[in-house]
Amino acid sequence: MAMHDAQPRALALVLVIGLAGLAVFPIFGADEKFYMQFLAKVMVMAIFAMSLDLLIGYGGLVSLGHAMYFGLAGYTLMSLTPEYEGASLWISLAAALGVCALAALVVGLLVLRTSGIYFIMVTLAFAQMAYYVVHDSKYLGGSDGKYVYVKPVLSFFGWQPFSLDKLAAFYYVILGTLAGVYFLLRLLLASPFGHVLVGIKANEHRMRSLGFPTFSYKLVAFVIAGVLAGLAGYLAAALDGLVNPELLSWHQSGQALMMVILGGMGTPAGPILGAGALKLLELLLTSWTKHWQLLLGLFIVLVVLVFPNGLASLFGKRKRGGAEHG
């Protein structure tokens, strides 16, 4: 069996405990709006980081423009939200994901012709183009961005089970989405498609000579990753109630990249750990000192030096298969 099917038991345990903790938090911390909002944001970033890990950790495609899809989805929601009522969740979500799929398809067709450092540069270039279009567009609110005044409305044929205005309800929607994306990715990675993707990362040339049209597989992965990033961006815009160009900025792409590296590339749970660690540390350090970015940077350097496979490697080796020499 290939290593990417393996999930160390300790890591699975940490994941289950973590999810359980997140699930019970609103019961005990119902009054802690700040922390609930904070955790909801962490989960959104975890979804975003997982989508990037599909490209980096499995496809070997280091994108530095992944925030483009995150931001585009948010802006789509903003554009579809009237001033005094909520947009339909289904319609606005479908539109946001559709926009991201289309953007990722067009960008992917162009950038996937390059590789390595050039791939990093052209993904960044496309994201920067999108950033400046949004930044300089009056209709989209320019550099200040715009409010999403009312949260999207979730309704099944007129029946509304709950309102996303209630933070606790929204929190559980995000938690459910996080779990859903995690299992979706695990399913995807265990499928023939996932095995092809991992093969491409290991040796694209050999994959072609074995009969795989690698470009098509990379393009499909790029679109899936773009759509999942869009899902995260949609939730972020709805949760915060505003969008601004920073959502598409290279800082945002870089932050997801750091989460992936910190947590462990190519592990399904790594980006979740990375998002949690980075955001938690940021919270602790900002309350302690204004030089928090310096300390955060030092921490990341330290983790990368000590655990080159990320925090996920703390919970067991991720490579499976007999290692004895013969």
């Binding site: 399913l187 265990a190 023939p192 092809v196 098509s216």
Partner: peptide, 15 residues
């Protein structure tokens, strides 16, 4: 696996 008509299969486990 390259002899499958396509590997654009996302749900069933490869194994």
């Amino acid at each position: 696996q390259s002899r499958l008509p396509s590997s654009m299969r996302f749900v069933r486990r490869a194994l």
